[in-house]
Design a protein around this nucleic acid. Structure first.
Lengths: 207, 207, 207, 207
DNA sequence: TATGAATGAGGGTTCATTCAT
DNA sequence: GATGAATGAACCCTCATTCAT
């Protein structure tokens, strides 16, 4: 029943604050959910930030829950696409794993609000939407895991490690980025990506 | 404003479910916060689960927020004590780090409800309580980090790694346990602890 | 404010579900009002059921209220015409009363949705429309009552009965049909009509 | 989950408008539902009329729906008790039927607001509560019907009549009272009761 | 020590209607 | 003739907290 939230842009005749209404709503919701948490952000606050009324929000989104789901969807689609592209390459599996690890760190930092929301607010989605998101997330993890398994078969990675545990180990670190990373701190996204990638590779590599 | 929540036990002649009222309240609150989240758990649900009335809760705790703070306090005190004990030993720093890592995994799994609450609900504490918790947490992280720095000075651990980044890397994995670990799954707490500890050591060790 | 709702049919070349738009809207509104009640049926539901948009509805009808009024109008016109025709005959007044009673039962059952709406939703009309409907209804009742009065003058019906009370007695039964009658039950419309007519005649006849 | 709404009276120390809060809420709700209809009466209007806040209403009643259900319950209990008492007598079945008919007319008029609500708002109850009310109502109708069946077996009432149809015929008239009866009109409750009872008896009697 | 009725502010959501296109 | 985005007001309900008892 959720309406299609990504209508074409308003075409440049733009009255108001520039971007189209659904995009503005998603952007403000993302910002507020990341800051205050999903439950502490009221629909009223979102629409005020976006400069529209509640009716407009419910014209585009079926519920507050739908907004959250849409936010998840965007980031999942983005990361899945990127991982699939990296995994499909024909380079050494160690390079592919390193690159995949660095890439997810960079995109997580570039979308830090989404990252914060992701690991804090998943359980506030309605059960069925939670199931949908988990399924997409599982696909993503499986692709990542298959890289580790491939490295183990090739003798590059330590064979006794449980690949699923390694995935949970690493993605815990990634999801946690939202808790401590600050854009205005001393570390660039690429610096963190390089070190996380290095740590992951060192932890699995056959020495 | 917070009353002292840990009064002596009611002496055993207690009516009801055995344990003293404040303990029962904390236990039920922990269970419910972990399951539904802090904001979605009502005070009414907590007192019903504990078999008391609202008046009783507000007799022992100044606010719902106080309950959450107390839960944080318990787990922080526990983990700080254990880490301090491990860090104070005189064994090889690699052993101390491995042991500290394994220990925090085991206690996180043994108190999985607290772990879930910890990483999801921090931002739902009042700002000043949040500050207090963060300060305690920082002390904990600093102790952990000092083990890594010691290992670097000794030449056991790779010198170019940023110790604080390593700590955030590892504790992301630990906090994430609440998201995927299930007591009735195939892995014991000790098995996860061993593998996480192994991964951490491998990732930092000089090879 | 109400536009003329019964425009000529669109000529048969019509796109969509066959009948002209206003008729389709009235038909779906009748079905929905009978099922869910007037207040619980949204304009959105009506236009979706009719396969048009809100703009179309408001093009033909001035308001949601207008739809309800039009539904009342149709059934009132129908029943008034039929009663007038029966009352104008020259047969024995007992036969005319019996026929009128049976006829209103049959048409009430044939338009059971209208009947349900009639007795449940009158008070949801705007005051002025309510007044108009009541006036038409009064005319109808007066015609019916005059049959009873005629029978009393002729000595066929018991003289001490209050004719208006008899009318209310009988039409209570008729309006109530919507509550219990089901088309797929064991009773045909004609069977109910015969028995109701019989009960009415027996209740007023001089024995 | 509905709280018990009929606490003891407040004991005479009565601050405020006299009666206890739940009773006041039910009384005002009855008045407003009868006047405007259930859907058109807001919870805000009810609590304002009763001089309390929304929180107080929801302290005693689980939902607006519960209020309606409680109103139904009261009138059903009253009428069931009275009918059972009359049906249990040992007088001639014609007298018992006449008395039962007259009695339900009198109590329906004495509780005219409840009567109005009954026939207009039943379908606005939640499905499960509707089922409960219908079941109670069916019991009531069955008792009434058994009087007619008894009269048919005794040869007092016409044997070919369908008893259930007679019951629906008569209770249509009774439920309809709310539509036309006015306390300040020319007819006393007893006068209407006598005539309705007479009409019913005449319609079923063997002549 | 404990009760539980009552508050008051705010929660998410629905909806008839309008109007620029 | 017809669209559908947007409004704005009202809707039912929840909840942490207080306080007279």
């Amino acid at each position: 029943m959720a309406r299609n939230a990504t209508s074409g842009s308003s075409g440049g005749s733009g009255s108001g604050s520039g971007a189209a209404v659904p995009e503005r709503l998603l952007a403000e919701a993302t910002r507020l959910f990341a800051g205050r948490g999903y439950d502490r952000t009221s629909v009223q606050e979102i629409v005020e930030a976006a400069g529209v009324t509640k009716g407009a929000l419910y014209h585009y989104f079926g519920s507050k829950d739908d907004l959250l789901h849409e936010i998840y969807g965007r980031v999942l689609r983005l990361q899945t696409e990127r991982l699939d592209a990296i995994a499909a390459r024909t380079t050494d599996v160690r390079d592919r794993l390193a690159e995949a690890a660095a890439d997810v760190v960079v995109t997580s930092i570039e979308n830090l609000d989404d990252t914060k929301i992701f690991f804090r607010s998943m359980h506030q989605l309605s059960p069925e939407k939670q199931k949908a998101v988990r399924a997409e997330r599982r696909r993503y993890h499986e692709t990542f895991r298959s890289l580790i398994e491939e490295g183990q078969r090739d003798g590059h990675f330590r064979a006794h490690l449980r690949p699923d545990l390694v995935v949970d180990f690493f993605f815990g670190s990634v999801h946690h980025l939202g808790t401590w990373y600050h854009a205005d701190g001393p570390l660039s996204a690429e610096a963190v990506a390089a070190e996380f990638s290095d740590l992951l590779l060192a932890s699995v590599r056959q020495h």
